[in-house]
Design a protein around this nucleic acid. Sequence first.
RNA 1: GCCCUCGUAGCUCAAUGGACAGAGCACCGGACUUCUAAUCCGAUGGUUGUGGGUUCGAAUCCCACCGAGGGCGCCA
Length: 543
Amino acid sequence: MKKYLSLQLSPVLQALGVPESIAPIFEKPRTESHGDLTTNIAMIAAKHLKTNPRQLAQQILEKLNLDKTLVDKIEIAGPGFINFRFSDKYYHAQLADILEKENQFGRSGTGNKLKTQVEFVSANPTGPLTVGHGRGAVYGDTVARLLEWTGYDVTREYYFNNAGRQMRVLGDSVRLRYLELLGEKIDFPEDYYQGEYIKEIAQHLIDLHGKNLKDEPAEGKFKQQAETEIFDDIKKTLARIGVKHDVFFNENTLYETGQVKEVIEELRKKDLAYDQDGAVWFKATAFGGEKDKVIVKATGEPTYRLPDIAYHRDKLRRGYELIIDVLGADHVATYPDVLAGIKALGYDESKIKVPIHQFVTILQEGAVVKMSTRKANFITLDELIDEVGADVVRYFFLMRGIGSHLNFDLKLAKEQSEENPVYYLQYAHARIASIIRLAESKGVDVSKSYDLSLLNQPEEISLMKLLSQFPDMVESCAATYEPHRLAEYLHDVAGSYHKFYHEHRVVGDDLNITASRIALCLATKTVLANGFSILGIHAPEKM
RNA sequence: GCCCUCGUAGCUCAAUGGACAGAGCACCGGACUUCUAAUCCGAUGGUUGUGGGUUCGAAUCCCACCGAGGGCGCCA
């Protein structure tokens, strides 16, 4: 429709002397009374032509000749908006389109199978996932789903490191608990992992090996067992909320394949790395950084930056054309170094996008809970799922923009789980399913023979309008990596349906009207179900 | 001290630079003999942190200040 309007509009604009650089932009007005699409072209162009916007709009309209079966009404409003209102017939055609495409409705080929990677979660296996990880997990997965719907070829990747200091401490934490369980007196350091799960892992080792590990080093069986068990739990937790990674990438690979070393050598060759105070530095200042950064410590160990740069080069080498790194706000300072490093190696860093999500603040009994895996005073994602269910968890994290500092009142979430917003959406779907069951039980053939032109009531038209916007919605959410707008949209669809339901009886005496309204219900059900599948929540047939 | 994200109804949050700033909770008043009341209808609620600037037009862009969270390490 936008295409059609621009096509009709551009010769008119040219005739009026509007420069070609000013192309009309159409948008959906916020309020329904302003029509279905609007353009501000008259206001923009008026400036160049030194004329009054409303007058110019009038001139445009006089020369514009549109298909009246599609566009019902054109109005000039406010300071000079031109508002287009489409005909019912246009929306009936849209409805037919939904019914035909069904679970494919909303999909597009925009992405052109672009090889894309979404990297998210990427928590090292030192403990259970927290609520904070949950936000990144759900967000990353949903962005991946959005990209799949719009025709991108998506790989979900999880990056981890099982070699660093964190993991050594983890292994030693298990070792000490192991000795403790065997009756030895131990001094458990404050900065070790305090969680109960460490004791459980230690107990498992006793079950498996008895006392035989007494003299085993921390980095051996202890670390290994901890990593295996914790990673297992992490994967299980993610699976509960519908998140599954295609690739688990171990940082260690980058050392084994020599890619880390390669990065240093190349940077040196380009004179972008140098030695000072026994360490190796990267000239980040050459790429707009505040100061140069250490990439290899005086001890010979690399800092996280070096493998990170090598990792991103590896992603590019694997042929990804679009790379999305989902990061939490605590990592905000790390990615400029990585991008600078990639640029230094001669790659196009604009292929790497880094959406950053703000923290989730947990309120418990009205007080802020400071989260720390080390101190084990976190609320695990598992516990949250236990309390409110996977659908609620996903929807809750998706219904807000990632830039907002999310306040999660745990007490409230538990208490209100019965009237959580997600049920509002799912109820609409279940309600439709129920009506269709009823219709079928009365012998109505819901699969064919309906006359969409019977749908002319205000509530029916409003609903059809919303439904027809679904593909645009998916498109723009995918382009901006903003799933929360889809969540809002679906909320509107559900609301519009509930209103329709209260005003009009679907299954009635008039078989023709019944059939057409059933068609509208089916189309609504399709849009809801398709939307839910992008958000990763269930579409219940019954509630 | 510097950098990043942000500040919108009592609370949690929306709003590609556009028209009267919107939802959900909470509170108040209505609607089940009728396809699911997990719903609907109505009412209340605002100087968009403050002060300037750009623009035909600002919650949105720019500057300053105030406040919140995060980051400024040869930790990740």
